[in-house]
Simulated assay, not measured.
Amino acid sequence: MSKPTMIPIRTPNRPKGRAGRRALLAALVLLTAFSLVYIRFDAAEFLLGIPIFIRFLFEDFLPPNPSHLQGYLKPVVDTLIYAVIATFCSSVLGVALALLMARSTTPHPSVRTVLRGLLSLLRNIPFLAWASLLVVIFGVGTTAGLIALILFGCGFLARLYAESIEELDRDSIEALEACGATYGQRIRHAIIPQFLPAFYSWTLFMFEINIRASAVLGLVGAGGIGSLIKQTMDLFQYGKTSMVITIMIVMILAVELVTNQIRRRII
């Protein structure tokens, strides 16, 4: 008995899908070309500037100058303190606003709508823009930088906290509601225990962001290690600038390492 002949199955081509991908790629290339023309990007000037940049980097900027290393200690400590205070204040305010904004805990839908609009404003304005505005109001110093970090962090955390609360299991909440529990009892016994892992994770992440942000706030006169960068750059002391940036990089990496270890242990 002869074996049945196997007929190969051909996969149908998808010309429409290929044409769509090609059209999308062509549109992306055209958009990029238009953007380069619009901003008057000069490729020749860019290529000629590369050797100048490399020469500056290795002749003026590197190696770092550690001659005034002890004088950098206070700005580094100030930067860490800014981040701690800003993270604490923004997390406390963020939890309160998140409870009012989350669908499962808001007292009224209108409260949620108003708060979402207000926090979108706080979150979408960059912290450097907040710092620049607050420097005009409060003057040069730490107050403007701290308030800028708190405003930005509050808007950022409140939204993330609210989304985390909305994703919690509702079985325990509904069980407490069926037993006649008050609003505060539902928050304490059903919401908070489930919300704590997300709270720790996002708060530690916000602390890392605040370290980076507070390190550059000095560029607008808001204090911290960024003020050293601006000062040394203005005085053309590029070796000292390189040293300050190196300290900032080491500090950020150390903070990330510590927060990752804390996150693994408590979450």
Rank of each mutant, 00 (worst) to 15 (best):
L25W: 13
S227Q: 11
W130F: 14
G139M: 00
L151K: 07
S110Y: 08
L25P: 00
I211G: 06
L204Y: 07
V95I: 15
E256K: 04
G117N: 11
D171M: 06
S2Q: 14
L47E: 09
A83P: 10
E167S: 15
V135Q: 04
A198P: 09
E167F: 03
I229R: 01
H189Y: 15
F199I: 09
G141F: 05
I50K: 09
F195C: 10
I85M: 12
R264I: 06
T241G: 12
I187W: 04
T246Y: 10
Q185T: 08
I147G: 03
N124I: 03
P4M: 13
G117K: 04
M101C: 09
A44M: 13
I50Q: 14
L217P: 08
E174V: 06
L36F: 14
V140C: 00
T241P: 13
A148S: 14
F152C: 05
K3S: 15
I39A: 02
I266P: 04
V136W: 01
S172G: 08
I247P: 03
L160M: 11
Y38I: 01
V77P: 00
A98Y: 07
Y200P: 00
G153P: 02
M243K: 09
N124K: 05
I147V: 15
T113I: 13
L168A: 03
R264S: 09
I249E: 04
L228G: 01
L217H: 09
R123D: 11
K240V: 06
T32A: 14
F195P: 10
A19T: 13
F56N: 08
E208I: 10
E208V: 12
I245F: 12
T143Y: 00
S90N: 05
R265T: 04
A162K: 03
D60S: 09
V95F: 10
L93K: 03
A23C: 02
G141Q: 03
L57A: 14
C179D: 11
A131I: 11
V29M: 12
V77K: 06
D234R: 04
A181T: 05
V216E: 04
L217A: 12
A129S: 12
T259P: 05
L204I: 07
F195K: 12
R212F: 12
Y161G: 01
V258R: 02
L228S: 05
E208G: 07
K3T: 14
A129W: 01
R40L: 05
R186A: 02
C89Q: 00
A131Y: 10
R116E: 11
R188N: 02
A27Q: 06
V250T: 10
D78R: 01
L80D: 01
R22L: 14
S242F: 06
I225E: 05
L36N: 07
F207E: 02
A129N: 09
R116S: 11
E166V: 09
L36I: 11
M6S: 14
V220L: 10
T241V: 15
R263Y: 09
V29L: 14
Q70L: 14
G71A: 07
G223S: 06
L118D: 01
L57Y: 11
I7R: 15
A213Q: 13
S120D: 14
L128N: 01
T5M: 12
R22A: 13
R116A: 07
G226L: 07
I150M: 14
G20E: 11
Y82E: 02
R14W: 12
I187Y: 05
T259Y: 05
W202G: 00
L235H: 12
A158G: 00
F199G: 04
V244I: 15
Y238P: 09
Q237C: 03
